[in-house]
Simulated scan of single mutants.
Amino acid sequence: MSGVSAQSKDSFFLNLRFLLIVCVFIANALEPLIGINTWADRWYTWIFMFHMPLFVWVTGYFARLSLKGEAGGRVLLQIMAQYIIFQSLYSLLDKAFFHVQGLHHSFFAPYLLLWFLASHFCWRLLLLAMRRLPPAVQLTASITLGGLAGYLPFEGTWLSISRTFIFLPFFILGYHMTYEKISLLLTPRIRSAAIAMSLLLFAGAVWVSAHLQTGWLYGSMTYTELGHGEWYAGFYRIGIYMLQLTASAAFLGLVPLTSGWLSRMGSRTLYVFLLHGFIIRGAAASGIYTYVHTTYGIAFIMITACLLTVLLSLPGIKRAAHLFIEPNVDWLLMLFNRLAEFCPKSWRTASRIETKS
């Protein structure tokens, strides 16, 4: 594997990222039909076993090149800008066009899918705080924090605090992952076994949805909200981690290894992630779900979600939406460093965003 180029190494993770954003789109499109159609329940539950842990994992992998220094500061500022822009846009559309009732719009309560931006911001800060610790200690600490997060005495959706700690172990695992490590597990025999396991989990997804509250897979609810106020409820989280790790490892067997159009679209998943919510919201408001609740309707929704994912991954969408999805934050970077000049000399260096990574 030593002769594999850096681009080829990243292709696997880019391919994975695209397949995951397809799963995100499908799951969100199927959500209004949960409890109405068995096939919707099966696909939805199967996807939720792995798609969020794996998305956090692959995000951690790509954070390796931009965690510290100027690159890290720029990413943090960009995440903050994206959050402010899209939290405002989605809230405005809900109020002015979709007239959604019962939603609490606040910058301290991330709007639906925007929890990922808030948590990504925090994952980077937490990993920076732990960067001097050995990886094994980082992982142990993150699993402990993930288990303790369920005992919070307030709603876990506040600033996405529950998901931040619950999915932190996957971010740390991804950060310390290399292609050389993962390639050892990508032999034809292991991939075949992984695909078989993934199909087995899909077959058992209906049983899981009937016996396991989906909130455990969301990671956004405290143990009290899940109906488990016992002191030992944290051990249930360990069991969920094991299920998610198994489902995630199994799904990796479905990911192509070669570089190509899938990899190129995988480099533009941010656009699908931030824009597809408008389509989902519009579809829900249109009343289309009253006509597509049959098995054929489920197939139609899933195929449409796949096609729209491809559409939103096209270069033209990136050119059109680049300014507000990947806003230029250089001016914020300069402002931050200017303000740091007025800080006490004892911590000025720590406050300033370095110009070298």
Score class of each variant (00 low, 15 high):
G69D: 04
R352E: 09
I303L: 15
M265I: 11
A129Q: 06
T214C: 00
Q82C: 07
L114G: 00
L19R: 03
K181R: 15
K318W: 01
A284I: 15
M52L: 12
I47T: 01
A193V: 14
L112W: 14
L33M: 12
P32Y: 07
A299I: 15
G156R: 02
G219A: 08
T45L: 09
T290D: 13
V100I: 14
S5A: 12
I298V: 15
G239Y: 09
L339S: 11
Q82V: 02
S142E: 02
G277D: 02
V272Y: 00
A109V: 13
E354Y: 01
T164K: 05
L126Q: 07
W331K: 13
I353S: 01
L200F: 15
Y83N: 01
W331I: 10
Y90I: 09
V4R: 13
R281N: 10
L20T: 05
L185N: 05
M52S: 02
R64N: 09
S248M: 07
F62N: 04
L30R: 07
L20P: 07
F55E: 03
I182H: 01
T294Y: 05
A141D: 01
A205G: 04
F12G: 06
W347G: 00
Q87W: 01
T144N: 00
L212S: 05
R163K: 13
V100F: 11
L173P: 03
R64T: 13
L257H: 10
D41V: 08
T349K: 14
T349R: 13
K318R: 14
A27E: 02
L77V: 08
F50Y: 14
F336H: 15
S351F: 12
L323I: 10
F167P: 01
Y296V: 08
C306E: 07
S162M: 15
A249I: 12
F251I: 11
I279T: 12
S357F: 03
L16R: 05
T258V: 10
F165K: 06
L20E: 02
S5W: 11
L262Q: 08
L335M: 10
G277M: 07
V4E: 03
N37M: 09
L114P: 02
S2C: 01
E230I: 00
V329G: 06
L226G: 03
I317A: 02
L67Y: 08
D41F: 08
F167K: 05
S106L: 09
Y271R: 03
L308W: 09
H51V: 07
